[in-house]
Design a protein around this nucleic acid. Sequence first.
DNA 1: GCTTTGACACTAA
DNA 2: CTTAGTGCCAAAG
Length: 101
Amino acid sequence: MKTFSEKVYDKLRTVPKGKVTTYRDLARSVNSKAYRAVGRAMKSNKNPVKIPCFRVVKSSGEVGEYSGRGGVKEKIRKLRREGICVKGNKIIDFEKFVYRF
DNA sequence: GCTTTGACACTAA
DNA sequence: CTTAGTGCCAAAG
């Protein structure tokens, strides 16, 4: 039995490039409501290389937080590189970029 | 094995 | 729009 975190990582890897997912939906996709545990798992960051943490955002459309290098700024930069426009911590056309499982 | 914590979500005012 | 309060669950200590 994989741990919750491992399942989350696995799901996150299924998110196509140029798309994002939310903590809530991600948690739900692994049959749990532990959206908080998802973020916690990211920060625990067991596998920073394989896991595109920057593709995980809040359900409200905000980018949320980030613990890598430059914090949220770096996260936004990465999102933009995927083709997602971000304006002041808010994702433009967020619903368009959300990947639904 | 119990307590605290957190990269969140939702509702109400 | 903002603040405040409540709920949620796994991981760390």
